[in-house]
């Protein structure tokens, strides 16, 4: 038994040393007084992660402080977001890269322990990526209207990167607004979903622009419409669903957005410093190039405007989730 205690204490001590390696303290008067944690609520490798690392890299120069990216994946993005909502000691130096998962998660799980709008401070939306309505090259449909008219009589299938993804929810929204018959076919990520679309196993998808852009260029996929407010400069010939307008499509404007949020106790001074620093970051050439390569556009809203946007999104997805029977009590 004594031996066991020895072992456990050695292990515990070692773990403590190892864990504390990542925590350092610095002293200064103005915010930030120590390193800033940028929480990514997803595993490494996705758009949120890549964007966050790019932003953290540029933010370091603007804040003159270390910005540490921390991945905290789990249950969509709700594990990390729930943790942020609880506040705690480091809440004044913690920011989180929120994305559609923030609002969709709240719609699907109404019993979440946090309020997706009131518990947070919305700093700045950094990036908007449109979704593209794409069909396989050999699909008979040349326009969104043709597709809808066919889908009102026949059952169509649409693929997504998983239940509750922005791709899935865009499809559900499209289905509800247009009264189409569509079956959702979920895959484990966009990488796995793409072959089914290219091979014609599914009829349509509302994929993120970066995933399908090269396939549209090469002619393997046909873009019928983009879901953004205005046409994308990358696909200038492709209409927006909003401008098509028929079948309630004027109501279908949705983008994958990525923006920084903090706990609602985030100090005012820190909020102002962050907003200023992020404006500088967004003006940097590196950031502009990065956004272009993703086929997206820089975010334009921050503060209260950003908050209103998120509140509207929550309400919208809430209705879609209820309609599609996705709400998990």
């Amino acid at each position: 038994m004594k031996k066991l205690i020895n072992v456990l204490s050695t292990a515990a001590f070692g773990s403590a040393v190892a864990l504390s390696l990542s925590v350092s303290t610095a002293h200064a008067q103005e915010w930030p007084t120590k390193e800033v944690r940028l929480v990514v609520p997803y595993a490494p490798g996705g758009t949120t992660d890549v964007l966050s690392r790019r932003v953290a890299d540029l933010l370091k120069d603007e804040l003159n402080a270390n910005v540490v990216v921390e991945n905290r994946p789990g249950a969509g993005s709700t594990v990390a977001t729930g943790r942020l909502a609880r506040g705690g000691r480091d809440a004044d130096h913690t920011i989180l890269m929120a994305s559609p998962g923030h609002t969709i998660g709240a719609a699907i799980y109404p019993s979440l322990a946090y309020d997706p709008v009131e518990d947070f401070l919305f700093i700045q939306n950094m990036l908007d990526i449109p979704n593209v309505m794409v069909v396989p090259a050999n699909s008979p449909y040349e326009s969104a209207v043709e597709f809808i008219e066919a889908a009102q009589d026949n059952n169509m299938s649409f693929s997504s990167s998983g239940v509750g993804s922005s791709i899935h929810m865009s499809g559900e929204l499209f289905k509800t607004l247009t009264g189409s018959n569509m079956t959702h076919v979920p895959f484990a990520g966009s990488g796995a979903a793409l072959p089914a679309l290219l091979g014609g196993d599914v009829d349509v998808s509302f994929e993120n622009m970066p995933t399908v852009f090269s396939h549209i260029q090469s002619g393997d996929l046909r873009a019928l419409a983009v879901t953004s407010e205005e046409r994308s400069e990358f696909l200038p010939d492709v209409p927006t669903l909003k401008e098509i307008g028929e079948h309630n499509l004027d109501q279908l404007v949705t983008t994958a957005w990525f923006g920084l949020i903090a706990h609602n106790s985030f100090p005012e001074e820190a909020f102002a410093t962050m907003q200023e620093a992020l404006q500088q970051v967004m003006e940097r050439e590196e950031f502009t190039n990065f956004v272009e390569q993703l086929g997206g556009e820089k975010g334009t809203i921050g503060g209260d405007e950003f908050k209103t946007f998120v509140a509207d999104e929550v309400a919208r997805w809430d209705a879609v989730a209820a309609e599609a029977g996705l709400r998990q009590e």
Binding site: N6, V7, L8, T10, A11, A12, G14, S15, A18, L19, E70, N71, R72, P73, G74, V79
Partner: peptide, 19 residues
């Protein structure tokens, strides 16, 4: 060796999701 391995077991499991 084994106490060190146990430490890595703890740290390795923690490091996956920081949880």
């Amino acid at each position: 060796l084994f106490p060190i391995v146990l430490m890595f077991c703890v740290y390795g499991s923690y490091a996956v999701n920081n949880d």
